Computed example of a mutant assay.
Amino acid sequence: MQHTTGSSPSTEEGLKREIGLWGLTANIINVVIGSGIFVLPAVVSQGLGAAGIVAYLFCGFLITIILLCFAEVGSQITVTGGAYAYIEAAFGQYWGFLTINLFILGASLMATAAVANALADTLSYLVPLFTNQLFRAAFFVVLFASLTLVNVIGVKQGIRLVKLTTIAKLTPLLLLVLWGSTHISVQNLQWERVPALSDFGSVSLILFFAFQGAENSLSVSGEVRNPQKTIPKGILLSLLVILLLYIGGTPSRSTRQLP
């Protein structure tokens, strides 16, 4: 495997470096922020109440440590592949082979299938036709074929679509945060109790899922301009946006408790 350096317009892989800082940042945000933001804040609030912000900061600290490692190695190994390329460069082709197969099975197949079905389930509330299995299967074929076609056309078109979907995803969330900031009650920010360590641990373990996915976004490293600087900046900038958005969109109090 060849390791490229600098910010040349193309690489020895035959790829063009067309993705800039904002494109990479949008890609990471788009992958990390998913359906979890609509479910996990309620879980955190139920389990920890106003103390839930500590769980966000704790998980944010943990993921920062991990992503700092990715930022360091991503600035040195700038070929396409992300974690797979890093592991192969460090430990050899066999371990790289195992890594890419786990990613394909876990992230590309199982996780994507779960998210796609969650999308179809949500749409079924508006369009009951999505409860029909044949219609759902046809919808998935058209959806994923369209996304594949965009990426086949070119990386510029692909990253442009990523930016548009990121804006479409973040806009309602930001509006919700802005609207909620005008209805803040100081009383709801007061801790009713100090959460038990077991409660804090179980909630943080669930919440950590909401921060995962950034490593998969680095699979396009071979198409990033000036990767030595862009990758570390993109990782840190996207993590900051994600953490602020998660904290801003979290309810501070709940009358229910986790069993």
Rank of each mutant, 00 (worst) to 15 (best):
T80D: 05
G23C: 02
T182M: 14
G106V: 07
F103Y: 13
S35Q: 07
S202F: 09
V186W: 14
F103C: 13
P41R: 01
A168M: 12
Y84E: 07
V220S: 04
T78P: 06
L119P: 09
L178M: 13
Y94V: 11
L15F: 10
G92Q: 00
Q212G: 10
T5W: 13
L244G: 08
A71S: 09
N30T: 06
L134M: 14
N117I: 07
L236E: 04
I65M: 14
I206Y: 09
P41I: 00
L105Y: 08
M1R: 15
S221T: 05
F97T: 04
F144Q: 08
N27G: 12
A145C: 09
C59G: 03
A50H: 07
N188I: 09
I167W: 08
Y125E: 10
R225A: 12
L239T: 02
S108Q: 14
S75E: 06
S185P: 05
V115F: 10
G60F: 00
P227W: 02
I66T: 15
L40G: 04
P41Y: 00
A214W: 02
W95E: 11
L243I: 15
V241L: 11
P9H: 05
T99F: 11
A116M: 08
T78S: 08
L175W: 08
D199F: 07
V32K: 02
S252T: 15
R225E: 14
A89V: 09
R17C: 08
T25S: 09
F135K: 06
L67Y: 15
K169W: 04
L243N: 13
L175H: 04
V220Q: 05
A107H: 15
V32E: 03
F200N: 07
A26Y: 08
A42N: 12
A90E: 04
I153P: 08
N132T: 00
E88A: 10
A210L: 03
P259V: 10
L258V: 15
S198W: 11
A51S: 11
V39D: 02
P232L: 02
A210I: 03
S10W: 13
W95C: 06
T165Y: 09
L147Y: 03
G92K: 00
I167E: 06
G234M: 01
G180M: 12
N151K: 03
F140A: 13
F97I: 02
G248N: 05
G249I: 13
